[in-house]
Measured scan of single mutants.
Amino acid sequence: HAATELTPEQAAALKPYDRIVITGRFNAIGDAVSAVSRRADEEGAASFYVVDTSEFGNSGNWRVVADVYKA
């Protein structure tokens, strides 16, 4: 099962156990969220919340930071 994305309210009520950072070329924010979901799932997380997204220069590469939560 894939890790689910939390709302800001849900994330605020929970304590993350880790923070992950992924970088890559994403065509849309949805693609980045899917990549975070896969990584969170690999780490055994039940859910995640994207904290920050930023573009690296003009290369089209993105850096996505997310907190991950157990259950």
Results as ranks from 00 to 15, higher is better:
residue 14 L to S: 09
residue 32 A to F: 06
residue 42 E to D: 09
residue 48 F to W: 04
residue 59 S to R: 07
residue 67 D to N: 10
residue 27 N to D: 11
residue 71 A to V: 11
residue 51 V to M: 02
residue 66 A to K: 00
residue 29 I to E: 07
residue 28 A to P: 04
residue 6 L to I: 05
residue 19 R to T: 06
residue 54 S to R: 13
residue 14 L to H: 08
residue 12 A to G: 08
residue 57 G to Y: 06
residue 42 E to H: 08
residue 64 V to E: 01
residue 39 R to F: 09
residue 55 E to P: 11
residue 62 W to Q: 03
residue 68 V to G: 00
residue 50 V to W: 05
residue 19 R to I: 07
residue 53 T to D: 02
residue 8 P to Y: 14
residue 13 A to V: 13
residue 40 A to I: 06
residue 47 S to H: 15
residue 34 S to E: 14
residue 27 N to R: 11
residue 53 T to Y: 15
residue 54 S to G: 08
residue 56 F to C: 11
residue 21 V to N: 01
residue 4 T to W: 10
residue 12 A to K: 12
residue 62 W to A: 02
residue 17 Y to R: 01
residue 12 A to Q: 10
residue 10 Q to W: 06
residue 34 S to K: 14
residue 9 E to W: 09
residue 44 G to E: 04
residue 33 V to L: 14
residue 3 A to Y: 03
residue 59 S to T: 13
residue 19 R to M: 04
residue 17 Y to N: 03
residue 51 V to T: 06
residue 27 N to M: 12
residue 8 P to N: 08
residue 5 E to C: 13
residue 24 G to S: 03
residue 21 V to Y: 08
residue 53 T to N: 06
residue 34 S to G: 09
residue 19 R to H: 02
residue 38 R to W: 06
residue 36 V to C: 07
residue 71 A to M: 12
residue 37 S to Q: 15
residue 16 P to M: 04
residue 35 A to E: 10
residue 54 S to M: 14
residue 41 D to E: 14
residue 39 R to N: 03
residue 29 I to H: 09
residue 49 Y to I: 08
residue 63 R to V: 13
residue 25 R to K: 12
residue 55 E to C: 10
residue 20 I to N: 01
residue 68 V to N: 00
residue 52 D to V: 12
residue 14 L to T: 06
residue 48 F to C: 04
residue 4 T to K: 14
residue 56 F to A: 08
residue 68 V to T: 03
residue 27 N to G: 11
residue 36 V to F: 00
residue 32 A to E: 01
residue 18 D to F: 11
residue 41 D to A: 15
residue 45 A to T: 02
residue 29 I to G: 04
residue 12 A to C: 11
residue 60 G to C: 07
residue 22 I to L: 08
residue 7 T to V: 07
residue 7 T to G: 06
residue 7 T to M: 05
residue 47 S to Y: 15
residue 15 K to S: 09
residue 38 R to S: 07
residue 44 G to N: 05
residue 42 E to W: 09
residue 23 T to F: 14
residue 8 P to H: 13
residue 59 S to M: 10
residue 10 Q to H: 05
residue 20 I to C: 04
residue 34 S to P: 04
residue 66 A to D: 00
residue 45 A to L: 05
residue 63 R to K: 10
residue 32 A to S: 03
residue 48 F to L: 01
residue 59 S to V: 09
residue 35 A to F: 06
residue 47 S to C: 13
residue 56 F to K: 05
residue 2 A to L: 11
residue 58 N to E: 14
residue 18 D to L: 15
residue 54 S to K: 13
residue 27 N to H: 12
residue 31 D to Y: 04
residue 36 V to N: 01
residue 63 R to Q: 09
